[in-house]
Simulated assay, not measured.
Amino acid sequence: MAEVTFKGDPVTLGGKEVKVGDTAPDFTVLNNSLEEVTLSDYQGKKKLISVVPSLDTGLCSKQTRKFNEDASSVDNAVILTISNDLPFAQSRWCAAEGLDNVITLSDHRDLSFGENYGTVMDELRLQARSVFVLDENDKIVHAEYVSEGTEAPDYDTAVDALKSL
């Protein structure tokens, strides 16, 4: 498993770590309308999955904005932001930020995404900051588990991986 700290303290990541070359595991999360969403809902699309601890923090907000700004023009691609925030909070964040096209998904109910991608910080029941890029066939072409949860991911490498598909 990836070694991750949060505010300098080691955390245990629950679930199974995924790696480049793996077929992305399915998951079930909730959208802002409390409807279940799965990986197969984006079948045939390139996917950048941005995972954040909470949209209500400055870095998570920046990460969500940056990936949507830098990667939204990629043909046949979708940018998904996953956190354990409640769908109501995610919807409120999108409205407050003036972002209409951002797809925020909540893993608060079942931790399905976090368990299947190894991103649940067990001690905090939050998602560990991470980024995954999947091709149209759900093969993982980029996976980054950010080693310190209060630091930014490598935006350029993730966006370049998406653009190269």
Score class of each variant (00 low, 15 high):
A2E: 00
A2Y: 00
E3G: 06
V4K: 06
T5R: 08
F6W: 02
F6N: 02
P10V: 01
V11M: 05
T12L: 04
T12D: 01
T12I: 02
G15Y: 07
V20W: 14
T23W: 14
P25E: 13
F27A: 03
F27K: 04
F27P: 11
N31M: 03
S33G: 09
V37Y: 15
T38L: 00
T38K: 08
D41V: 07
Y42N: 14
G44Y: 07
K46R: 10
L48E: 00
I49Q: 12
V51R: 11
V52W: 10
V52H: 06
V52Y: 14
V52L: 09
V52D: 09
S54C: 07
S54V: 13
L55Y: 11
D56V: 04
L59D: 04
Q63S: 05
N68I: 09
E69Q: 10
A71S: 03
S72N: 13
S73Y: 03
V74E: 12
D75E: 15
N76L: 00
A77F: 05
I79C: 11
L80H: 04
I82R: 13
I82K: 13
I82N: 07
S83L: 09
S83A: 14
N84S: 15
N84K: 13
P87L: 14
A89D: 06
A89R: 11
A95G: 06
A96E: 15
V102H: 04
I103P: 15
I103V: 13
D107G: 01
D107W: 15
H108F: 15
R109C: 08
D110E: 05
N116Q: 04
Y117K: 07
G118E: 08
G118H: 00
G118S: 04
E123C: 00
E123H: 06
E123V: 01
E123G: 11
L126D: 07
R129M: 08
S130L: 03
V133C: 06
I140K: 09
V141K: 14
A143D: 09
A143T: 02
A143M: 01
E144W: 10
S147C: 09
E148K: 12
G149T: 10
E151Y: 02
P153W: 08
D154P: 02
D156N: 14
T157E: 12
D160A: 11
L165Y: 12
